[in-house]
């Protein structure tokens, strides 16, 4: 249990390597399925759906790191977050390339029309484009260059990206919104807990800033001349 509380750098490296392989599993499974022709009657559709779902799943998993860390006190979990986020991006890129290549065969006219005319593709495409700056700045150099505060506010855009991702899925389904509704609920919980923390923090700061006893009676306003 001591390992779990305070793992050494080496132990974290081992955990990271194991997690890396685990995150690759869905991709390996898809590649094997394509090679063995076990993806069903419409393999392109199967790859498109699987890569899209894994993008969403990794986004949610990435957003779970902070709440999990706060709930358990296992602060080293934070050191896994960048990799999880980059896997979300990687599956997203795979999803986009499946569409561009296997589905549309780089028919740029058809692709442009899709992005402009089909709302679910518009938001999905936007989500992926917005992930690019986050992926590009997922390194220590960028944190130093941008400064912690700016880097953090940039990376908070992942909340909006995840919302776009769920909307993309919701608008794609023809009639049965059960699966996207599950993602929407999970995302609402993950974002809701953050909003709640924020509110708690605001109250704490207010309470600390205000004097314990507010003077009653007439308050003379101090207007600068």
């Amino acid at each position: 249990m001591a390992i779990l509380r305070h793992p050494t750098s080496f132990q974290i490296a081992v955990i990271k390597a194991a997690l890396f392989l685990l995150c690759l599993l869905p991709a390996v499974q898809l590649a094997l399925g394509a090679y063995r022709d076990t993806l069903g009657a419409n393999p392109v559709e199967a790859i498109t759906h699987a890569s899209g779902e894994w993008t969403l799943r990794f986004l949610l998993i990435t957003l779970t790191v902070t709440p999990l860390r706060r709930a358990t006190g296992l602060h080293w979990l934070l050191r896994l977050r960048r990799m999880l986020g980059l896997f979300a991006f990687a599956y997203g890129v795979a999803h986009l390339f499946t569409y561009l290549w296997l589905d549309q065969f780089f028919d740029w006219m058809a692709i442009a029309l899709d992005i402009l005319k089909r709302p679910f593709i518009t938001v999905g495409f936007a989500a992926l484009v917005l992930m690019l700056p986050l992926a590009l700045t997922s390194n220590a150099f960028s944190i130093r260059r941008l400064g912690g505060r700016r880097w953090q506010s940039l990376h908070r855009s992942v909340y909006g990206i995840a919302i776009l991702g769920v909307v993309h899925y919701w608008w794609l389904v023809k009639a049965d919104v059960l699966a996207p509704a599950v993602y929407a609920l999970l995302l609402a919980a993950l974002l809701g807990v953050r909003a709640w923390w924020r509110e708690q923090e605001r109250r704490r700061q207010l309470a600390a800033a205000l004097p314990a006893r507010v003077p009653r009676g007439k308050v003379i306003p101090l207007v600068p001349k």
């Binding site: 009657a41 392109v44 296997l102 065969f105 029309l113 089909r118 023809k174």
Partner: peptide, 19 residues
């Protein structure tokens, strides 16, 4: 006549790769 979700100009014949 394009559908809000799918362009109907092309189709994938099941078992074929290109549309």
């Amino acid at each position: 006549v394009s559908h809000p979700r799918w362009s109907q100009a092309t189709e994938r014949r099941i078992g074929e790769f290109r549309k």
